[in-house]
Design a protein around this nucleic acid. Structure first.
Length: 515
RNA sequence: GGUGACGUGGCCGAGUGGUCAGGCAGAGGCCUGCAAAGCCUCCUACGGCGGUUCGAAUCCGCCCGUCACCUCCA
């Protein structure tokens, strides 16, 4: 079968377009990463997951991929445009909030960066080729600001340096915010800079010697504006023409709008061809917020603390859900459509992920047994994989892709007796599907299996000896017809969250996934 | 007010002119000492009103509703 055409919705053109890399079969893209001032939440990761799926789909097509995904470890003003002498900044606020935990702002950034990378791996996201930090590129950012001033695209006031929006054509095209008055904030409770020439102009540099992070510049001590870092790091690593740029929908305006203007001014031409934005998710039908009690960080769900009262007790009781179940859940909505994250979906996802894993176990056993017989699965699984890939190529249609993958699991389950040949086909299919979707087995766990620490979510390991004893007792009871006693033992196990299955070859147990 | 997205069965969600999505929940059956798991079968919907068409969930128009963004946010 010929490879399907990879198509993505481009915010810039409002159309779903074929992805045609500048370098043939080499996708180069930039992903806006997090500001590291708190633990990342599941909405953050919906967006990063889009970038991961983009990569995996391109790789499945045989393309090379170069992805740059930044870490924003410079605090920016909570009201981006406003030069607030008080320096109310997200990271500074975090430091004030959690002051006793961290020695300084850099320590805080380091902590949340490490936590972010742990979550990233837990969710089975592939590593970007480059993960630059904003603080490592401040000099580059300053050079860019100087260049913008020299080219007449920016000007300095007492309070900072601003990009002049009217110096580039087409400002507002990406977001549709073309009217000047739309670009003026209605409520401004912080003093704005009276020397700004146009309310739409945005800050490139903020003069503030008191800021917790500050650098020397031609305009005195201060720190860079938010938008310039992505322009600079993107072009630094990917050149002044690259394929694609990803981020959350909130970044369309102002962040990416400003980035496009800066890119145009610096390079003299458009730099990025495709802009891909992930919609915000909702949780239980509402916007996720701490006050609504539906705000979940990744670690809330995969390794909650016993006192995380906002995490449902059923999840806390079992020490968190399988991270792949969380990943699977986030894939149950296409990245561009409204998505309602619910515990019900999480529950279903956990079942599906376990089902894939059990199919994989069965295939591995059949591989070892290597029974004679024809390959009854290969053609069918090839067709299923083709449809899975086609769904991903269709603007990352993950619900359709996972539905197709599930058909593969059913196909394997339906086969009563797997021949060695069929098992090999099934194994190959599982590997390809996992490469594409990442929902069957974690690449990082496999990597680290040698020195594997016990998953904190699984506390049955120390119990398995006594579980085996109980099961043997139950078998003895069953053989002697003492079914009441056998059922009582099973009830005991179920109370511990252990499911018992009497298979023809003997009893098996596993943890329940009920939430 | 501006911009964009979206409304499919009890629930989640595919599907861009004529043929089956898939899953969850539910019902029946096979299997089982009974269960569980798995397998088989059943449950047939497209916000409303017009229009185009031999034929529309699918195209067009209007209306209703939901959501998001419009300088904190992925």
């Amino acid at each position: 079968m010929s490879a399907p055409t990879f198509r993505l919705y481009n915010t810039l053109t409002h159309e779903t377009e074929p992805v045609e890399p500048i370098e043939e079969e080499h996708l180069r893209f930039y992903s806006c990463g997090p500001t590291v001032y708190m633990y990342a939440h599941i909405g953050n990761f919906r967006s990063f997951l889009t970038a991961d799926l983009l990569r995996r789909t391109a790789e499945a097509l045989g393309w090379d991929v170069t992805n740059v995904s930044n870490i924003t470890d410079v605090g920016h003003l909570t009201q981006d445009d406003l030069v607030d002498p008080g320096g109310a900044d997200k990271m500074q606020q975090a430091l004030e909030r959690e002051g006793e935990r961290f020695a300084n702002i850099y320590d805080l950034a380091r902590h949340y960066t490490e936590a972010f990378l742990e979550d990233w791996r837990a969710l089975n996201l592939r590593e970007p080729e480059v993960r630059p930090r904003a603080t490592e590129h401040v000099t580059d950012q300053l050079h860019a600001v100087v260049e913008l001033v020299e080219k007449g695209h920016a000007y300095a006031t007492d309070q900072g340096v601003y990009f002049s929006v009217e110096s580039v054509a087409d400002y507002g095209h990406l977001s549709g915010n073309t009217e000047a008055q739309q670009l003026e904030a209605t409520d401004r409770d912080v003093v704005e800079d009276p020397d700004k020439r146009d309310p739409r102009d945005f800050a490139l540099w903020k003069h503030d010697p008191e800021h917790l992070m500050h650098w020397h510049s031609p305009w005195g001590w201060g720190y860079p504006g938010w938008h310039i870092e992505c322009s600079v790091m993107g072009m630094h690593y990917l050149g002044d023409r690259f394929d694609l740029h990803t981020g959350g929908e909130d970044l369309i305006f102002p962040h990416h709008e400003c980035e496009i203007a800066q890119n145009q001014a610096l390079a003299g031409h458009p730099v990025v061809n495709y802009w891909v934005h992930t919609r915000f998710l909702q949780v239980e039908g509402e916007k996720m917020s701490k006050s609504a009690g539906n705000f979940y960080t990744v670690r809330d769900l995969i390794q909650p603390g016993p006192d995380d009262a906002h995490v449902p007790a059923s999840i806390r009781a079992r020490g968190g859900v399988d991270p792949l179940a969380l990943r699977y859940t986030l894939m149950q909505g296409q990245y561009r459509k409204p998505f309602n994250f619910t515990l019900d979906t999480l529950h279903t996802a956990a079942r599906h992920v376990r089902r894939f894993q059990e199919v994989a176990e069965r295939v591995d056993e059949a591989l070892d047994a290597d029974a004679d017989g024809p390959d009854t699965l290969g053609d069918r699984l090839d067709d299923i994989y083709d449809r899975t890939l086609a769904a991903m190529c269709d603007d990352l249609n993950t619900p359709a892709a996972t539905a197709a993958a599930l058909e593969g699991a059913t196909a394997i389950e339906q086969t009563d007796r797997l021949s060695g040949a069929a098992a090999e086909s099934a194994r190959a299919w599982l590997a390809r599907t996992n490469d594409l979707l990442g929902i069957i087995e974690s690449e990082f766990e496999a990597e680290e299996r040698a020195g594997a620490t016990v998953d904190p979510g699984l506390d049955t390991d120390h119990l398995s000896g006594s579980i085996d004893e109980l099961l043997q007792d139950r078998e003895d009871a069953r053989e002697s017809g003492e079914y009441a006693r056998a059922d009582a033992i099973r009830d005991t196990l179920e109370a511990l969250g252990i499911e018992v299955m009497d298979r023809p070859e003997g009893p098996e147990w596993r943890r329940e996934v009920e939430l």
